[in-house]
Amino acid sequence: MNSSLLPAGHRLQAVIFDWAGTLVDFGSLAPTQIFVEAFATFGIAVSLAQARGPMGLSKRDHIRQLLADAAVQAQWQARFGRASDDADIDALYARFMPMQIQKVGAYSEPIPGAVAVLQQLRAEGLKIGSCSGYPREVLEVLLPLAAAQGIAPDHVVAGDELPAGGRPGPFMALANVLALGIGDVRACVKVDDTTPGIEEGRNAGMWCVGLSVSGNEVGVTQDAWRALDAASQERLRAAAKSKLLGAGAHHVVESINELPRVLVDIAQRQLRGEEPGHAVPL
């Protein structure tokens, strides 16, 4: 996207990105696998599909939601003879954190197209925010690794650092608005691969773009995706798109690589008088 693509007089000011499955870690594998491994250390079998269910929430809330799953809770009660409580959430979180910190670097590779898209956004004069369900301790490991590969937003908000809470509330997105000095939330676009992340953007009053293939909803590596036959790809793509649209996405594309053309469309819709609160998903 060069400076001639966005229409003259456009009102876009910023794009706010999620991290895993959006900017880095095609398939959003890092957080998912660690949840499986952390629960396994307590003798609880959690499938990758179960682990993906609450993705996008802060990691402590994610653990809480997994324990609320009927099948997982049944395992817990069978093993420990009682229902799980807040102390168990704390214990699982304490087990999860060092495992995630140790392994997040292995999943820091940018999603194809991400570096070029961020460069294009800056060339357009747009500010780049970001937020994540990752705690700050995990981001402190991920951020320098991602920056060395060309992924360096103007601002980053972690899932555990706002007293008001995380997704699906608007708080992390709005923290970016404040830090970046954005004058109108309607001039922001939230880009995310999870339903809580899309709901976050909608609750903040922003335009929202869902990513169907690169993130949590499909949940496979790029090589695994390419190895699928066309029918399987279409089935997974359609299911992911339906879920993200259901969460409130205005647009859904496969990955960040397709974002520039969507931003052009959003800018044009704004100029026609459309606003995020009542715009029809496309």
Score class of each variant (00 low, 15 high):
142 L>V: 13
227 A>R: 05
194 T>P: 11
189 V>E: 15
228 L>M: 02
154 D>P: 12
138 V>Y: 07
17 F>G: 06
179 A>P: 07
4 S>Q: 12
165 G>C: 10
64 R>Q: 12
155 H>G: 15
23 L>Q: 04
218 V>I: 05
20 A>R: 03
24 V>R: 07
74 A>L: 13
165 G>V: 13
278 H>Y: 03
195 T>I: 11
68 A>M: 07
99 M>G: 10
197 G>Q: 10
83 A>H: 11
117 V>E: 10
40 A>C: 05
50 Q>K: 08
192 D>S: 04
77 Q>R: 14
9 G>N: 05
4 S>C: 03
16 I>C: 10
187 A>N: 11
190 K>I: 13
173 A>Q: 13
132 S>I: 05
186 R>G: 10
152 A>W: 11
252 V>D: 04
165 G>P: 10
112 P>G: 03
151 I>Q: 01
86 D>M: 07
160 D>R: 00
162 L>T: 04
64 R>H: 08
27 G>Q: 08
194 T>F: 01
18 D>V: 02
208 C>S: 11
134 Y>F: 15
79 R>H: 09
119 Q>I: 08
58 S>V: 00
270 Q>M: 11
48 L>P: 05
94 A>F: 06
147 A>T: 07
268 Q>T: 09
279 A>E: 01
19 W>N: 07
143 L>G: 04
56 G>Q: 03
149 Q>T: 01
111 I>T: 04
173 A>H: 08
185 V>K: 00
